[in-house]
């Protein structure tokens, strides 16, 4: 399965995402924001970083970059799309996911190994987890506070569209401790924490077993490889 990772000007974690796909057993493909087609990939990852310097709003200019109209079309036809951190912000700005992300309530950038609960496994990116599974992956952002109006929030909760929730610590003031969302179809998922930084022993979060041994993010990339492309 060919999984594309789009590099925008200012993307940081595109290389890590490509490596995560490879470690999960997929064929990673580099895509460029200025392209107009998706080079025949079967799934897409929008990586973390600071696309376009976070100018205008985080992810806003990326959401209007040339390749994104192809991404939106493909997502609406069922192609798996994962947005990580800045990629999540871009998916929200592209209206593929609901709500908005604003500056952390404490006003500072935060980096920590963050415990999450997998709230929904009926998506192509979370099917490799068990319902309610607790995972720890790195979080690092300045504008990760999830917000939505009451009606949207009620709908997200009622329809089971919350994919991940922060556990123990709410690191940025996100409403309802929301760390990640899915769309109704289950092919689009976005989250602020970084699964691609927890895929390889020696380079992940600490675990009780050993330092830097956490690989809880790997299942996200394995999930999409196991999924058949929805039509």
């Amino acid at each position: 399965m060919r999984v594309g990772v789009i590099t925008f000007p200012g993307s940081l974690d595109d290389r890590d995402a490509l490596r995560a796909i490879k470690l999960a057993g997929g064929d990673p493909v580099s895509l460029w924001h200025g392209d107009h087609d998706l080079h025949g990939v079967d799934a897409i990852v929008l990586p973390g970083g600071f696309s376009y310097g976070d100018y205008l709003r985080c992810g806003a200019i990326a959401a209007h970059s040339p390749i994104m109209s192809a991404v939106v079309d493909a997502a609406n036809k069922g192609m798996p799309v994962l947005g990580i951190c800045n990629g999540f912000q871009t998916l929200v700005e592209a209206h593929l996911l609901a709500g908005g992300l604003i500056r952390n309530d404490h006003g500072t950038f935060i980096r920590r190994d963050q415990k999450l609960r997998v709230e929904n496994v009926d998506t192509v990116w979370t099917s490799g987890y068990t319902q309610g599974q607790e995972i720890t992956i790195p979080l690092k952002n300045g504008e990760g506070g999830f917000i939505a109006d009451d009606e949207t929030l009620k709908q997200l909760e009622g329809d089971g569209l919350v994919a991940f929730r922060y556990l123990e610590v709410n690191p940025n003031g996100s409403l309802n401790d929301i760390a990640g969302l899915r769309n109704a179809r289950g092919n689009v998922v976005g989250l602020m924490p970084h699964p691609e930084h927890a895929v390889e022993p020696g380079f992940g979060p600490d675990t009780p077993a050993a330092m830097s041994s956490g690989t809880d993010g790997l299942a996200m990339f394995q999930s999409v490889l196991a999924a058949t492309v929805l039509s």
């Binding site: 604003i102 006003g107 003031g173």
Partner: peptide
């Protein structure tokens, strides 16, 4: 402008 109901951390600081 950011919506009235939202926290504006930059404004607050």
């Amino acid at each position: 402008m950011p919506k009235e109901v939202l926290l504006d951390p930059a404004g607050k600081a």
